[in-house]
Design a protein around this nucleic acid. Structure first.
Lengths: 235, 235
DNA sequence: CGCCAGATTGAGGAATATCAAACAGAGTGG
DNA sequence: CCACTCTGTTTGATATTCCTCAATCTGGCG
């Protein structure tokens, strides 16, 4: 990993960050210790139960948040893309609730939680932004509950692929660094079952895959399989 | 339903409410429109998609939050007990994301969302309290994801029963107004399967049921089935 | 009593997991 | 450049879990 002092003023994610809406002066006055960092594929950002010192903003790449059961089984609870936040459960002093691992080479901003906490007490805008993120996370978790609770494997995989593609708009060929085992851990299936369904999708020419790149050929058919009556096709 | 102006000062839930930590003077100065209300079994508090005017604190009883799929299938996303909050997604102006239905005769406080929003901007304590609730909700949703994604029916039901019992401490016999269909919609199973497993648990004398009352006879065995290595038995 | 919603039970079938084996591709060392 | 390993994928055969459908049973209630 590679750390350096960050220049938030010029960050191209600023408009979507938790510091959006602050004037440059306010931003300057924060005195926040923010470090740019890069994490390679497989890098562990933090582990379940560790005391939380830092929170992160994911600027580029993808990160999985997972919990592991006693028996060694791993469940991926959420998958994060550029613009997402992680590690903020530490703001209330709690230890990390997940293990966070980079799925692809990623760029992040690392924020000191103690400072952030003081900050959010002073600046309601920041607190409101963080609240919004919590709400988004809850919404996505609840959608995941619906997937796991009500849909069959095919449908789960279809929605998953569509959701993934929506995080990379106007991109024909998507970065797709996930292992079958990762997908399985996220969708509550076995590796083999995921593999079979992916193979099916390819045979039906719904998707195409080559060297970590994924292409959604028939989003409408996938949406139909996913059980979304009329999801407006974004491609 | 039955409405009347509430006296928050004397509310016995005040210590756990989002207004905890406020001085009586602050509480007085709120000018919040808070209404006490009672809802009978099956009463609908709000529906998915409705514009959100009110949020609620559940003082007594139980409420289910559910989403329904296009095909008429219903998934219960979360079940609320006394002390829990609901309907707060409206604070950011969004419509309700769930349908909220009382599972038992319940007592709630109804808060005007617009007022609450203005309030939380003035009082960081209130906002912090709400943030904490969002976090709790997220945590519980993520635990549910783990249940649905990684555990088999028996284990899911066992954890569910144990979690239920933990919401009624020092109570030998628990109120248990749930239908098999409700449990099934929460655990991602079919009604019949739930029924079978419940019958099994009874035959093994792990639990006992009569007239809407549930008794956990062997919490330790249940915890074992649930896949919790050493959950400290709370009973 | 007759009726009705919910619960239980059984039988059969579909969805998914598990186990085992073969396969493909990316290094790596010779 | 070629074996050779290593990791991840695919495929097949079988076992298990869970669902579906249908029937019966139960308790409350007009």
């Amino acid at each position: 990993m590679n750390h350096k002092r960050s220049d938030c003023q010029r960050c191209r994610m600023r408009a979507q960050s938790i510091f959006a809406g602050l004037t440059p002066e306010e931003l300057c006055s924060l005195g926040m210790e923010v470090e740019d960092m890069e994490s390679g594929h497989g890098a562990v950002l933090y582990r379940t139960g560790e005391p939380a010192r830092y929170a992160y903003t994911l600027r580029e790449g993808a990160v999985k948040l997972s919990k592991s059961l006693g028996n060694g089984q791993e469940v991926i609870v959420r998958i994060l893309h550029h613009g997402d936040l992680l590690g903020f459960e530490g703001m209330q002093g709690e230890p990390h609730r997940h293990t966070a691992i980079a799925l692809a080479p990623s760029q992040l901003c690392r924020l000191d939680l103690a400072e952030l906490q003081r900050l959010s007490e002073r600046l309601p805008k920041v607190q409101a932004a963080i609240l919004q993120r919590w709400q988004d996370a809850l919404q996505s978790s609840e959608e995941q509950i619906v997937e796991l609770g009500a849909k069959r494997a095919e449908a789960r995989l279809a929605t998953f692929l569509l959701q993934w593609s929506q995080r990379y708009p106007q991109l024909r060929s998507l970065p797709f660094p996930l292992t079958r085992t990762d997908i399985a851990a996220f969708l509550g299936l076995s590796t083999e079952h995921v593999s079979r369904i992916m193979a099916d999708f390819k045979r039906q020419a719904l998707i195409q895959e080559q060297g970590g790149q994924l292409e959604i050929l028939k989003p409408t058919s996938l949406a139909h399989i996913a059980g979304m009556p009329d999801a407006h096709k974004s491609d």
